[in-house]
Design a protein around this nucleic acid. Structure first.
Lengths: 126, 126
DNA sequence: CTTTCATGTCATGTTTCCTAACATGAAAGT
DNA sequence: ACTTTCATGTTAGGAAACATGACATGAAAG
């Protein structure tokens, strides 16, 4: 599941490809970017690089506009979505792994007297 | 299922994208084309356009070469595959739809005496 | 030790994409 | 009725990516 997400967010598609996939003009796509609706990456040579997720978002934008929603409205929708996602993330309090549990228990033990040395376990980068 | 096939054979990816997706050089990709292993489409401005199927094939070619198969060998494999596919297609005798059955029955009736007019049914383009 | 194979590199021209500016028709305000 | 705003079109000049063709090369094959 992680693999597919990575592929979908891989920014490799240049303007011409995205134009064909979305049937939008370059002008439109750049304008939506200027309005803060998308933020494509850039190549070394400063050319825009889009991911499949970006393409999906552009298709969404296209549909919203076709439905009469203006750009400010679309931005509001995305801002709201982002806020909701962020709230959910911080509320999720990600579940502890067995590894975490062991480490925490060990720390507890060490603080209240110490048994076994703290640095004997597996090193975790974060 | 038909939809996905279409998308996978949609030729929209330019050289730079394919280079990134396959980690092949432009020289390699063009060489494989010169050897008849792939046949990308061309844009109006004569630039190569690849589909996801093409990318898959390039990845295959890369793997074959890494395994010591030379280009003639890879071509032989593809020629053989194509022959097999073609044979299977002609043997498959694609199943008739209800619509086909009705049309054939009607033609039969018409030829052996006629009941109902031939052009009263639904028009099918092919 | 010369050929072949797969690829690298360079030169030169064309196409695509960049930014920035001005133009425009349809809505919306005043 | 006139002026802004919005979303998009168009044009211009420059930079990046891509095209083809030629020559170079190391490894393998003959």
């Amino acid at each position: 599941m992680k693999e597919k997400e990575l592929r979908r967010s891989l920014a490799v598609l240049p303007m011409g490809t995205v134009m064909k996939l979305t049937s939008l003009t370059a002008r439109q796509i750049r304008y939506y970017e200027a309005q803060g609706l998308i933020t494509p990456e850039r190549s070394d040579g400063n050319r825009r690089l889009y991911s499949l997720n970006d393409v999906d978002r552009l298709l969404e934008i296209r549909d919203y506009l076709a439905d009469g929603v203006n750009i400010a409205g679309i931005k509001a929708i995305y801002d709201q979505q982002q806020a909701a996602t962020k709230a959910k993330q911080s509320a999720q309090q990600q579940p502890l792994t067995d590894e975490d549990v062991r480490r925490i228990l060990q720390d507890e033990f060490i603080r209240q007297g110490g048994l076994g040395h703290p640095n004997s376990g597996i090193q975790r980068p974060f």
